[in-house]
Write a protein that binds this DNA or RNA. Structure first.
Length: 910
RNA sequence: GGGUGGUUAGUUCAGAGGUAGAACGCUUCCUUGACACGGAAGAGGUCAGAAGUUCGAUUCUUCUAUCACCCACCA
């Protein structure tokens, strides 16, 4: 005989605060989060998407982490050696910006401090927010191996970054050059294509007249309409009409381009025009890039300030005249506009053009304008010296890895998005003119100009051995270091046992917003440097929005702070909410009332356990199969089902269905039905044997269910586990329950359904007849059609009906035919000898109206079914059970109508 | 211009080729001995529209409308 020391003294309602703290500390102290390299067991590993140290975590992180924690906890229970590697990201530009903003409050700019001092300030910031983030993660219950916590700017990762940079450079996959890049004038740095966010906005399309040099009279004569491209003035001078949205760059024009096959301009190719506002003369050239249908069909070429023009400039060997500087101010090449901002220069030049009579007209157009992802400033195309990664060869391997199934995407649809981007990938600008980040390991020689790229700081130029070398001042794009995360965190470039055991990681969980920024680049880097994928599965989840579907943002004030939610409802409630809400491929709308729902669930579970404990003695009772009643078999069967199903669902990353299934199981099957029905036995009303077996069942159900719930709601389940007396071993460490075949009774499910339908029908009748809940009825006659379960077990369960519905005698009336299992047996009609009270109890007219409308709607259903049955094809071709079900519907409906009509009649008579 | 996802109860969302489900809200009743953070009963739906496949479509196909997002271009 086994005994357990139960704690029957649980609080009447669940309060999470102390319990959560207590268990988290206990798990930590006992090293339960620690990942061990164990050749005996299989490895499961996840590297956390490192949160930016820009601020504290938001609920999106909480969602992401809950998902990963559920996976990790489940895998641990399944016997895997689990590594969940935590860390944070230095988030270059983003963090630099928040620190700058913070300093601005004291009227200090980063230039006041200088590079070294400023970086020190950022480290101070990182120290504060890095630890806040870690604190938040522990509050949520994250089972990360904190011994292995990493930061993208720590020493080990810096080494990895350098190694990768040098190797790519030596391989020719990193190059440096003067190109047009996206430039944020406010941040004063280059940014990558991905960091530009486009927005439609209203702008002006200026039609500018460029005087054609030595123009011969045009055969078209005078005054051609605008848009034809060429107009003549009264003096006979001819103008080429060029449309532009950026008149301030006219002074940087070096050519006018037309399409080679353009009939309209054929005769002008090779001629020259004068650039308005200057006295420069520039050629008219031909290039395929021009769309003859757009604008006037000719384009001004400004290689220093437009990416397309830049390419045209290269092809035609044109000069690059820069007129705007890195801060967005007109420079010395801009003549009279020097010192003006872009907007001022635009306004001025338009005015000047007008005065000179060179502005033909202005049209309104909408076009999309790029903004800096981090500060919202309009992005300028800017010509500058930058570093790039040649991505094509890397991307090809990345595409291949997904195509041949080495990486699997869930939901699959994201594969397409990934392929589309990877197949059209462009080189990645990785240099940033920032101070916070990995400084590029390149040293430029003052004497010979050679660039030395090395893992260790060199003392001399590798080409001319001059000591006059200076390290490149640029830092790397923050995503460069994140791209290495799956292996850099495990000690690469050293040959660590961790790498062998835990790489490739098993799963990457993240949002679709960083597929390009991060996921794709990890794949490329992993394949290049580890010669293997960084993860086998990618799970892309939806984004969390507020209850109105709006993106959460601090400025909108609709941010749900996970810590506040945890304080208010507990971590388990938040986790369960996030898990249950998670659905593939749709945004998730979160509101605090939703969390409340799951807070109530915690209390429900708590009280269900409390009930069980109140009815369990210290002895662990064997389950005597022969003593089991229908509801016992039912709950045992459902419990085994859950054990199997939840595991399958988690394995296929469908934690939403798993969580909702558990919720329904606990609240519905267990609390609403089983606990209610087990009461008489537990009280001893059915004798000692039944009491013991029922106690055994109850114990079995909780012992199986608590582990299933644990990955979702670890704290409350661990507490209850201990209360049941299983505390010798942590719940966190127990094995995932296997479904026990001896506790599966298939037929109990359908029989229970009949019972439940019967009870519901009876309760319905009571409510309809306004019988007081306390009042016992003498007799109920229940008709079950088309057939009642003929099993003994079901007959025995009739006592339960009497118990649940307060009827002294329950009679079962049915054509006791063959009991066949299946859903078609669920049609139950019940009749009870309940006389409708009249007069003071019933509102007679209201009751009559209700009955009449009920009859009408049932008649409609019956008619629908009859119509179907009359279609000859239906009867002959539909499966027999479908037809049978339809017939049952008609019968049931008709008898219900009959019953209601009798009620109606008797009401009217009174 | 290319692509993806959505349109189901008052609201937010599940769902599945054959009786439309949940949560919250609403109505009526119940302080019943685990739980009022509870229990019972109920109202509320042409499953966006049209056509097709099928014995049968809310579910599959096509088209339309509409909303959201992503990518590219924008002189």
């Amino acid at each position: 005989m086994t005994t357990k020391k139960r704690n029957r003294d649980l609080e009447k309602s669940y309060s999470p605060d102390n319990i959560e703290k207590k268990w988290y500390e206990a798990w930590l102290e006992n090293g339960l989060f620690n990942a061990e390299i164990n050749p005996e067991s299989k490895a499961f590993s996840i590297v956390i998407p490192p949160p930016n140290v820009t601020g504290s975590l938001h609920v999106g992180h909480a969602f992401d982490h809950t998902f990963q924690d559920i996976m990790c906890r489940t895998k641990r229970m399944e016997g895997y050696s689990v590594l969940w590697l935590p860390g944070t990201d230095h988030a270059g530009i983003a963090t630099q910006n928040v620190v700058e903003k913070d300093l601005a409050k004291q009227k200090i700019s980063r230039y006041d401090l200088g590079r070294e001092e400023f970086v020190k300030k950022v480290w101070e910031w990182k120290k504060i927010y890095g630890s806040i983030i870690i604190e938040q993660m522990t509050r949520l219950g994250n089972s990360c191996d904190w011994r292995r916590e990493r930061f993208t700017l720590d020493e080990g990762l810096s080494r990895a970054v350098r190694a990768v940079f040098v190797r790519l450079y030596k391989k020719g996959l990193i190059y440096r050059g003067k190109y047009i890049v996206n430039w944020c004038p406010r941040c004063a740095t280059a940014i990558s294509d991905l960091e530009v966010e486009y927005e439609e906005s209203q702008g002006n399309f200026y039609y500018v007249k460029y005087p054609i040099i030595n123009s011969a009279p045009c055969e078209g004569g005078e005054g051609q309409p605008a848009g034809e491209g060429v107009v003549s003035s009264n003096s006979g001078e001819e103008f080429l009409i060029v449309a532009t949205t950026r008149p301030e760059t006219i002074i940087g024009d070096v050519a006018i381009a037309v399409h080679p096959r353009s009939e309209k301009y054929k005769h002008l190719i090779g001629r020259h025009v004068r650039v308005p506002l200057t006295d420069r003369e520039i050629p008219i050239i031909q290039d395929n890039m021009v769309d003859p249908e757009f604008g006037t069909g000719c384009v001004k070429i400004t290689p220093a300030h437009d990416p397309n023009d830049f390419l045209v400039g290269l092809n035609h060997n044109l000069e690059q005249i820069q007129v705007i500087d890195s801060q967005g101010v007109m420079n010395e090449n801009a003549g009279k506009y020097k010192g003006m901002t872009i907007a001022q220069a635009r306004e001025e030049s338009v005015k000047d053009l007008e005065e000179l009579g060179l502005l033909l007209k202005t049209e309104k157009i909408t076009h999309s304008v790029g903004h800096c992802q981090r500060c919202g400033t309009t992005v300028e195309p800017y010509l500058s010296e930058q570093w790039f990664v040649k991505t094509k060869p890397l991307a090809e391997r990345g595409v291949q890895a997904v195509k041949d199934g080495r990486i699997k995407w869930t939901p699959e649809q994201w594969e397409k998005t990934y392929f589309n981007w990877m197949e059209n990938i462009r080189d990645w600008c990785i240099s940033r003119q920032l101070w916070w980040g990995h400084r590029i390991p390149a040293w430029i020689c003052d004497d010979c100009g050679h660039i030395t790229v090395a893992e260790n700081d060199p003392t001399e130029c590798e080409h001319c051995h001059s000591k006059n070398i200076k390290q490149e001042s640029d830092v790397l794009d923050t995503w460069f270091s994140s791209a290495l995360w799956p292996f850099s965190t495990m000690g690469w470039p050293d040959d660590k046992p961790e790498l062998k055991y835990f790489y490739p990681t098993s799963l990457m969980v993240t949002g679709f917003d960083i597929i390009f920024f991060w996921v794709a680049r990890m794949i490329m880097m992993g394949l290049e440097f580890m010669d293997d994928v960084p993860f086998r599965d990618v799970y892309i989840h939806s984004l969390i929005r507020d209850e109105h579907g709006k993106k959460m943002s601090k400025t909108k004030g609709n941010v749900i702070d996970p810590l506040i939610m945890i304080d208010k409802y507990g971590a388990d409630a938040l986790r369960m909410t996030l898990a249950a809400l998670s659905v593939q491929g749709r945004d998730i709308l979160l509101s605090s009332t939703r969390i409340e729902t799951y807070r109530f669930f915690m209390n429900k579970l708590w009280n269900a356990a409390r009930f069980a404990l109140m009815n369990l003695d210290d002895e662990v009772h064997e389950i005597d199969i022969n003593q089991l009643h229908l509801h016992d078999k039912f709950i045992l069967t459902r419990t085994q089902e859950m054990a199997k199903r939840v595991r399958e669902l988690i394995d296929s990353y469908d934690i939403g269905t798993a969580a909702r299934g558990l919720y329904d199981f606990v609240w519905g099957d267990l609390c609403d039905w089983y606990l209610e029905m087990s009461k008489p036995a537990l009280k001893g009303d059915e004798g000692e044997e039944r009491r013991k077996t029922t106690a055994g069942v109850l114990e079995e159900v909780f012992k199986t269910t608590l582990p299933l719930l644990h990955p979702f709601i670890p704290f409350i389940t661990e507490e209850l586990w201990a209360a049941f007396g299983y505390g010798d071993e942590f719940l966190m460490r127990t094995a995932w329950p296997e479904a026990k075949s001896e506790y599966i009774f298939e037929e109990s499910l359908s029989e229970m359904k009949v019972l439940q339908d019967t009870v519901r029908a009876l309760r319905n009748l009571r409510a309809e007849a306004h019988v007081a809940p306390q009042q016992w009825l003498n007799k109920a006659v229940i008709k079950i059609e088309p057939a009642a379960p003929a099993s003994k077990i079901f007959d025995a369960a009739l006592n339960q009906i009497s118990n649940l519905c307060r009827v002294r005698e329950v009679l079962l009336e049915s054509p006791k035919g063959e009991w066949t299992h299946g859903p078609s047996l669920s049609t139950v009609t019940t009749e009870a000898e309940i006389k409708l009270p009249v007069g003071d109890v019933l509102d007679v007219p209201k009751e009559i109206a209700r009955l009449e409308s009920d009859i009408v709607s049932i008649e409609k259903d019956v008619a629908k079914s009859k119509a179907r049955l009359e279609k000859s094809d239906f009867v002959s071709r539909a499966p027999a059970e479908v037809v049978e079900k339809e017939r049952g519907k008609v019968q049931a409906g008709e008898s219900q109508i009959q019953r209601l009509q009798e009620n109606l009649k008797s009401l009217k008579e009174n």
